[in-house]
């Protein structure tokens, strides 16, 4: 173990953390909005909408992000003329845009499945009860389905956040120097992969540790009734 190298390298890697966070945060925020739309399309009775959403989710979940990233970034380069004509080349020219686009499309595909699962787990009785008291469709969605679905989806979405933080490491393949990009650079120059990857690993672990704790806290806050509900059930069980 080369301690000198570790001491020299960790400030460089830590310095790249904002880039990693920016990539992950942008993709997760935009991706979440897209995921909700896709999930609703998947749940809709409209066949074409359902089909588009199904195909989209299928393709993005079935192929490695590395290949998607590559095809979006270098693929768009092959259609420069066309993209220039429709004014999109300005965006596609930038590696950051392509990285966030690929990460967003990827996380939206996974996220939509998690949200769909959440929506499907909403007890039917609650929907019926809301209808019975005359809630409109949109109110029903806003007040009943969405909040319950989100609560159900939260643990799954927590996993997705962790996966996204790690997935940003692939942005280094399209010239972005986030944590892994910097790590690869130092490794290629010093040929000491173990030392550098341990620092990088510690950084990702730390970031994801915060994510895990954050999600756990949010879970507790969103389920304020959780513990009392369990108590009630057991109390009820005693009576009968």
């Amino acid at each position: 173990m080369n301690w000198e190298l570790i001491q020299e390298s960790w400030p460089v890697l830590v310095g790249a953390v904002p880039d990693t966070l920016l990539l992950a945060a942008s993709a997760l925020i935009i991706g979440f909005a897209l995921a909700v739309v896709i999930a609703l399309m998947r749940l809709s009775a409209n066949k074409p909408l359902w089909g588009v959403a199904y195909g989209y989710v299928y393709i993005f979940r079935s192929t490695p992000l590395l290949v998607q990233l590559f095809l979006i970034y270098y693929g768009s380069g092959q259609y420069r003329m066309f993209l220039e004509d429709i004014g999109l080349w300005v965006a596609f020219r930038e590696p950051w845009f392509c990285a966030i686009l690929a990460l967003t499309l990827n996380t939206a595909a996974y996220g939509s499945e998690i949200i769909r699962g959440g929506v499907q787990s909403v007890p039917w009785g609650e929907v019926e009860a809301a209808r019975a008291i005359g809630m409109s469709r949109s109110l029903l969605f806003r007040r009943i389905i969405f909040p319950i679905a989100m609560r159900q989806a939260l643990p799954g979405y927590g996993n997705e956040v962790i996966l996204m933080v790690k997935a940003t490491s692939l942005a280094s393949t399209i010239t972005i120097l986030e944590v892994t990009g910097e790590a690869k650079k130092i490794i290629a120059a010093t040929w000491s992969p173990i030392e550098i990857f341990i620092i990088a690993g510690a950084i990702y672990l730390f970031l994801n540790f915060i994510v895990t704790r954050g999600v756990a806290m949010l879970e507790r806050r969103l389920n304020p009734l959780h513990e009392t509900a369990i108590k009630d059930v057991s109390a009820g069980a005693d009576i009968h």
Partner: peptide, 19 residues
């Protein structure tokens, strides 16, 4: 689960293979 899920898979591979 925390450690394995928290670090990129590439690192796991490097550590197991070379370590």
């Amino acid at each position: 689960t925390t450690v394995i899920r928290g670090i990129p898979e590439l690192l796991i591979i490097y550590l197991v293979f070379f370590g």
